[in-house]
């Protein structure tokens, strides 16, 4: 066995249990500035004269350098939560602090790298120019040194992702998997301490997806960014993460948080291990329990 579960499927209490167990609860807060804090976040949309509760009472703390996955069915609000953290959407109530910064301040300081679902590369630029994009946008933040980011060398990151020889190609000349790798490279080159990834592999075939997960793990081991990753796939969540946040819908809320205590770096073939299989089953069972209880 690689790991044991430190939280059990159940309501938010399970999450609190986990946090308290590691002294991570609001009461036991030591270095509040050294983590992402989401407290009592609600998101309500108004439409056709009625209110839709997209997120309800979301509480989550993420430590610096942690890889956390938001996992759940469509419509559970995981992308909404990610967009709120990125400053692309605003919560109706509650508080979000990203290493002491408000999401909008973090965005103004270029401290957030956003990796969308589709690669969203600019088709008129070469891959190299695409990954250098962050250096050309919002230069005020760099000039005034508002940012905590440390830009990486574009060619180095491209080489790390196996795209070195394609740096001068345009996105249309690359396969879907390579484009997605370039999108991830763009995020890493930005050098932001936080990377928010919204189902970046969902449009890829299984083989490409598997290969990209391993590339992402390698890159994360080297750079140790704080990553919040959204996915529909339990296996992907277990393979990549330190913790999996299981969300349920109507309204979107955190059902429980599961620690993934597999070794880092993840050894080759870990997906075939009993511990991995057990964790995937646990994540799925937790989701199912949340679904049935919703």
């Amino acid at each position: 066995m690689y790991a044991k579960l430190t939280s059990v499927p159940g309501p938010v209490a399970a999450m609190r249990e986990t946090e308290e167990a590691r002294g991570d609860s609001p009461a036991g807060l030591g270095a509040a500035g050294d983590r992402i804090e989401i407290r009592g976040v609600n998101r309500i949309y108004q439409g056709n004269g009625r209110e839709v509760h997209a997120l309800s009472d979301i509480n989550l703390h993420i430590r610096r350098g942690e890889f956390v996955t938001l996992f759940g069915p469509s419509g559970c609000g995981k992308s909404t939560l990610l967009r709120i953290i990125a400053g692309l959407d605003r919560q109706s109530s509650g508080e979000v602090r990203l290493f002491k910064q408000d999401p909008l301040d973090a965005s103004r300081s270029k401290n957030i790298a956003w990796i969308p679902q589709s690669s969203s590369l600019l088709p008129w630029l070469t891959i190299r120019r695409n990954v250098e994009l962050s250096a050309r946008l919002n230069r005020r933040a760099d000039r005034l040194r508002l940012t905590a980011r440390k830009p990486e060398r574009p060619m180095q990151v491209l080489r790390e992702l196996g795209l070195g020889e394609f740096a001068d190609k345009r996105p249309a000349q690359l396969s879907g998997g390579m484009r997605q790798r370039a999108s991830i490279a763009r995020g890493f080159v930005q050098g932001a301490p936080m990377m928010l990834m919204d189902e970046p592999f969902s449009a890829l075939d299984e083989l490409t997806r598997d290969a990209l997960q391993l590339r992402l793990l390698d890159l994360w081991e080297k750079h140790r960014k704080t990553v919040i990753f959204v996915t529909h796939s339990a296996a992907e969540a277990v393979l990549l993460s330190d913790r999996v946040v299981v969300m349920t819908s109507r309204p979107g809320r955190i059902h429980s948080i599961i620690d993934i205590d597999l070794p880092r770096p993840r050894p080759a073939g870990i997906e075939d291990s009993p511990a991995f299989g057990e964790l995937v089953r646990r994540v799925k069972a937790t989701l199912r329990a949340g679904w049935e209880g919703a």
């Binding site: 967009r83 990125a86 400053g87 692309l88 909008l104 965005s107 103004r108 270029k110 957030i112 790298a113 956003w114 969308p116 679902q117 589709s118 690669s119 969203s120 590369l121 600019l122 994009l133 962050s134 050309r136 946008l137 919002n138 933040a141 763009r186 930005q190 928010l196």
Partner: peptide, 18 residues
């Protein structure tokens, strides 16, 4: 405009001119 690309720009607080 590609929505994802717009989000990438917004997440970096690119100006309206950019």
């Amino acid at each position: 405009v590609d929505r994802g690309a717009l989000e990438v720009f917004d997440a970096m607080s690119a100006s309206r001119g950019e």
